[in-house]
């Protein structure tokens, strides 16, 4: 999909107007294994690009999620508290993390499109 961008930290952001929905990629969830807990930011929190805003945990690993763009969190996926496995099952669907109202859409330009991200993942071996 053309409106989805990817970061080198294996996050995706789906852009609709000035709203972005953020989660982790298929590759990231495969690397993590069974996700057991996701700590998502509360609505109203202002985040800066690159700031650590969420944590995703498997049994043996914990990874920080960095905001791919700056803005204000408008909604987080409360369902993940009960069903963290959604991140494994549908990383780009039910397993989304949070929505953000972007303050600078120009920041999107620094992210990859799907083709570039696919090539990036391949380069990791």
């Amino acid at each position: 999909m053309a409106d989805v961008k990817y970061s080198e930290e294996h996050e995706w952001i789906r852009v609709e107007g000035d709203t972005g929905t953020i989660g982790i990629t298929q590759y990231a969830q495969e690397q993590l294994g069974d996700v057991v807990f996701v700590d998502v930011p509360a609505a109203g929190r202002k985040v800066a690009k690159g700031e650590s805003v969420a944590v995703v945990e498997s049994v043996k690993a914990a990874s920080d999620i960095y905001a791919p763009v700056s803005g204000e969190v408008i909604e987080s996926n409360a369902a993940l508290a009960d069903t963290p496995g959604d991140v494994n099952a549908e990383p780009m669907g039910k397993g989304w993390f949070f929505r953000i109202r972007m303050s600078d859409k120009g920041e999107l330009a620094g992210l990859m499109d799907e083709a570039a991200y696919t090539a990036f993942v391949k380069s990791l071996g």
Partner: peptide, 12 residues
């Protein structure tokens, strides 16, 4: 809940 612990989170 070992992800709280030093052997995984290290400095965090």
């Amino acid at each position: 809940l070992s992800t709280r612990e030093q052997h995984i989170r290290r400095e965090k």
